[in-house]
Simulated scan of single mutants.
Amino acid sequence: MVASSMSLRIQVPFKIVVQRDDVLRIVADTDDGAFGLLPNRRDCVAALAPGILLYQTATDGEVCLAVNEGVLVKTGNCVRVSVRNAIEGRDLDQLRAAVEREFRELDEQERTLRSVLAKLESGFIRRYARLLHD
């Protein structure tokens, strides 16, 4: 039987980002370059590189996602993508702005984390030094 669409699920560790049953085509990036998936393509597994994943539906047209590295598995008409992070956008300009916002937030979280770790380390060193002198 010839299928006309695919089921697509894109997930990150803490949630499902995309769950669609009407996907016409998918384009993803690997370290060896981009490749496309159509409904009747053979089953495959691919290690995804950070980049843009694109899928198309009849109702929404092309949808872009910025994805971090991960894995794509196609079995039959089901495509499952598991990545560390994914940000959805309707066009590349909107997606670029969303990615920049996300990076700024991550940078701020990393600065806060580094500050907390530095305080923990200095407290540990002070207590250890005190323990050695007592």
Score class of each variant (00 low, 15 high):
residue 1 M to W: 01
residue 1 M to A: 13
residue 4 S to Q: 13
residue 5 S to D: 15
residue 6 M to S: 05
residue 8 L to Q: 11
residue 9 R to A: 06
residue 10 I to G: 04
residue 11 Q to M: 15
residue 12 V to F: 03
residue 12 V to Q: 00
residue 14 F to N: 14
residue 15 K to N: 09
residue 16 I to V: 09
residue 16 I to E: 05
residue 17 V to L: 09
residue 17 V to G: 14
residue 17 V to Y: 05
residue 18 V to Q: 03
residue 18 V to G: 06
residue 18 V to R: 00
residue 19 Q to T: 06
residue 19 Q to R: 13
residue 19 Q to K: 15
residue 20 R to D: 06
residue 21 D to H: 14
residue 21 D to W: 00
residue 26 I to C: 06
residue 28 A to W: 06
residue 28 A to C: 02
residue 28 A to V: 13
residue 30 T to A: 10
residue 31 D to I: 12
residue 33 G to P: 08
residue 33 G to Y: 02
residue 34 A to P: 04
residue 36 G to D: 13
residue 37 L to N: 07
residue 37 L to P: 05
residue 38 L to E: 05
residue 39 P to M: 10
residue 41 R to G: 01
residue 41 R to E: 10
residue 42 R to D: 07
residue 43 D to M: 04
residue 46 A to W: 03
residue 46 A to Q: 14
residue 48 L to G: 09
residue 49 A to I: 01
residue 49 A to L: 10
residue 49 A to K: 14
residue 50 P to G: 03
residue 50 P to I: 13
residue 51 G to Q: 07
residue 54 L to Q: 11
residue 54 L to G: 04
residue 55 Y to Q: 09
residue 55 Y to F: 15
residue 55 Y to L: 10
residue 56 Q to K: 07
residue 57 T to L: 05
residue 57 T to W: 12
residue 58 A to Y: 12
residue 60 D to P: 02
residue 60 D to H: 08
residue 61 G to S: 14
residue 63 V to F: 12
residue 64 C to H: 09
residue 64 C to M: 09
residue 65 L to M: 11
residue 65 L to C: 11
residue 67 V to I: 15
residue 67 V to C: 11
residue 67 V to R: 02
residue 67 V to E: 08
residue 68 N to V: 06
residue 70 G to R: 04
residue 71 V to A: 12
residue 72 L to W: 08
residue 73 V to P: 07
residue 73 V to Y: 05
residue 75 T to G: 03
residue 76 G to H: 05
residue 77 N to E: 11
residue 79 V to P: 07
residue 80 R to T: 14
residue 82 S to Y: 04
residue 84 R to A: 13
residue 84 R to C: 01
residue 84 R to L: 07
residue 85 N to E: 12
residue 86 A to W: 05
residue 86 A to H: 09
residue 87 I to A: 10
residue 90 R to Q: 04
residue 90 R to K: 12
residue 92 L to Q: 02
residue 93 D to W: 11
residue 95 L to C: 04
residue 95 L to N: 05
residue 96 R to M: 02
residue 96 R to F: 02
residue 97 A to M: 06
residue 100 E to A: 11
residue 102 E to W: 08
residue 102 E to Y: 06
residue 104 R to P: 00
residue 105 E to Q: 06
residue 106 L to F: 15
residue 106 L to A: 15
residue 107 D to H: 07
residue 108 E to M: 08
residue 110 E to Y: 15
residue 112 T to S: 14
residue 113 L to N: 07
residue 113 L to F: 10
residue 113 L to C: 04
residue 114 R to H: 04
residue 115 S to Q: 11
residue 115 S to F: 04
residue 115 S to I: 04
residue 115 S to A: 13
residue 116 V to N: 03
residue 118 A to D: 14
residue 119 K to A: 11
residue 119 K to L: 06
residue 120 L to H: 03
residue 121 E to Q: 05
residue 121 E to R: 09
residue 122 S to K: 10
residue 122 S to R: 15
residue 123 G to Y: 14
residue 124 F to D: 01
residue 124 F to N: 00
residue 126 R to P: 02
residue 127 R to N: 06
residue 128 Y to C: 10
residue 129 A to F: 00
residue 131 L to A: 14
residue 131 L to T: 07
residue 132 L to T: 03
residue 133 H to M: 02
residue 134 D to W: 03
residue 134 D to F: 09
